[in-house]
């Protein structure tokens, strides 16, 4: 069984934010919520790198582990989804998520949180596939149509990949072999330079 994963190749990402726009447009994401964001490291400096971040559909998802009402479920191929009818908007998942993926609409005064919203890997939610109700609540269900997330499908530089983790890893491995190394923007050597550890 495949395990669906996102991978953003920082060497290829040009910070065009096309993935963010595609996601918002495809899923009619409300104003103030970004299911996907592009993060730039060392912005404006030589060697700056950008990565596109959304829900990474963790195998052992911390959001699901802390949810007090267990509104999360995982599909057979590893897509982490949630039921907005169960969500109480407590925000625990936001604090647990290392990627800041869970988002909350703030339509009321005093910072009252609405139901959590996050990337669904374009797989909708627990409502009839491609129904109006599903689209309104969770966005598009491209997986049910045999398509993959639009953010990755429209990425012009093929920096963002989304699909079976094994196939994605093979592509990335070939790229690394061709380049002769991995980027040094982050990792152990960057965090602990020699002589400072």
């Amino acid at each position: 069984m495949a395990r669906m994963k996102f991978l953003c190749d920082a060497e290829r990402c040009i910070e065009c934010n096309g993935c963010v726009v595609a996601c918002k447009n495809e899923n009619e994401v409300p104003w103030g919520i970004n299911r996907r964001r592009v993060i730039t490291l060392e912005d404006g400096l030589p060697g700056e790198k950008s990565i596109s971040v959304a829900c990474m559909h963790c195998t052992d998802a911390p959001c699901a582990a802390v949810c007090p009402v267990d509104c999360f479920y995982t599909t057979a191929d590893g897509i982490v989804l949630h039921d907005k009818d169960l969500c109480i908007g407590c925000g625990y998942c936001f604090y647990a998520c290392p990627f800041g993926a869970p988002q909350y609409p703030q339509r009321e005064a005093f910072g009252v949180r609405g139901k959590m919203d996050k990337c669904t890997f374009c797989a909708g939610g627990p409502l009839p596939d491609n129904s109006d109700a599903e689209y309104e609540k969770y966005g598009a269900n491209r997986i049910a149509q045999g398509k993959l997330p639009l953010c990755a499908e429209m990425c012009s530089t093929k920096a963002l990949l989304a699909g079976d983790g094994d196939v994605v890893a093979d592509i990335y491995r070939q790229r690394i072999l061709k380049r002769g190394g991995r980027p040094k923007t982050w990792g152990w050597e960057t965090a602990y330079p020699e002589g400072e550890a």
Binding site: V69, D70, C71, Y73, L81, D83, P126, L127, I143, A144
Partner: peptide
């Protein structure tokens, strides 16, 4: 609620996948 047990609506996509 029971820890780790999802009690929401069943997603029809699960069967298809």
């Amino acid at each position: 609620y029971e820890p780790g047990v999802y009690k929401g609506t069943t997603d029809p996509l699960l069967e298809k996948l």
